[in-house]
Design a binder for these strands. Structure first.
Lengths: 199, 199
DNA sequence: GTCTATAGGTGGATAGAC
DNA sequence: GTCTATCCACCTATAGAC
């Protein structure tokens, strides 16, 4: 039994180390050998737990989506539609700032680094979008946003926050300095957009 | 002279193949050997034109920005600040639709994969940004936009159009069907943002 | 300017002992 | 289940002939 638990722990450890290695150095510095090194096992041991490098990476990526969802769901804790919408924007930012490589993987085309990963991505992003449409819809019902097609408005909002975040993560907004400075700009710009959609 | 022209063409060919190889297979499948193979020359020949793998990728980036600039500059032909701003948005869209691969390479993540690419890239995007700030400024002077910090407003606008375009190009807006359908949505969403910034 | 050949290296995956 | 040892494919970059 002790042996069995140790095996499971090694597998989890490999997942964690693989994720961190990817998050630290991107695809460029990623290798199974280095993952094994960090996990304190030989390279060959990895193949007792995963069929291939891709199988391991698929596992890591699923974890990225899981984290993203956990951020977004916190927005439901707010009490009014308006607050839930604001919380969505805030959680979206937090996820991106605290997990930039996960963000990039999911929304900025890094998925192409791991060829066979695309399908899950499409499914997951559709459900994320649906979540946002629901928030928009309840804002319209309580007149926080002007009535319009919820899908179009949701797409506008998503594009807005994604645009801010992705330009930031790819270094084009380097002028905003610290994460806190950028966060202030993000909040101001987003509030402005929402008030523009309210009239 | 014939020889000289052929050399130039080989260089351009290498640039194109490098860009497409990266966009097709991501960082994973990228190698100078494969670029050379596709261009129909030996791997060693690449080093006659570029100092290193990174130098090649920098060049690809610069070429993309050159095309991008040519689109944006056409917006100056419009006669009023308001029309120039609208033309900016339109040319931005046109560049993305007509050169999606260049757009993706420049603005959607190649920078992080090729570590030392940032410097040149940053410079180019800064001058683009400056161009937009000027358009915003003249709109504020003629009261087409409300007075505010031009940099912040320009960043908001850029993030907005980039968000729309990049989500479109990465397939997350597949629901909008044809390019024309997307263009209509893009124009409506952008007009809405600008009117929100006008009050 | 392009080639072939090669140096020098990394990494995925497997074989077989323990 | 983990190890060591190994195979093999592929990579960047350089040297030197043509």
């Amino acid at each position: 039994m002790g042996a069995r638990r140790e095996g499971t722990e090694t597998k989890a450890r490999l997942r964690t180390e693989a994720r961190d290695l990817y998050l630290d150095g991107g695809f460029a510095g990623f290798s199974l050998r280095e993952v094994a090194r960090r996990a304190g096992v030989s390279a060959a041991a990895v193949y007792r737990h995963f069929d291939s490098k891709e199988a391991l990476m698929r596992d890591v990526c699923a974890a990225g989506f899981h984290i993203f969802s956990s951020y977004l769901l916190r927005a439901l804790a707010a009490r009014t539609p308006r607050e839930r919408m604001a919380a969505c924007a805030e959680q979206y930012l937090r996820f991106a700032v605290e997990n930039p490589r996960d963000y990039r993987f999911i929304f900025m085309g890094a998925a192409e680094d791991f060829a066979t990963l695309a399908p899950a991505d499409t499914t997951e992003s559709a459900s994320t979008f649906h979540f946002l449409v629901d928030r928009v819809r309840e804002c319209m019902q309580s007149r926080v946003l002007a009535k319009a097609d919820p899908y179009t408005v949701a797409a506008t909002i998503w594009a807005h926050v994604h645009g801010l975040v992705s330009l930031r993560l790819s270094g084009h907004f380097a002028g905003y300095g610290s994460d806190e400075e950028f966060a202030r700009f993000y909040r101001a710009a987003t509030a402005q957009l929402l008030s523009g959609l309210a009239e």
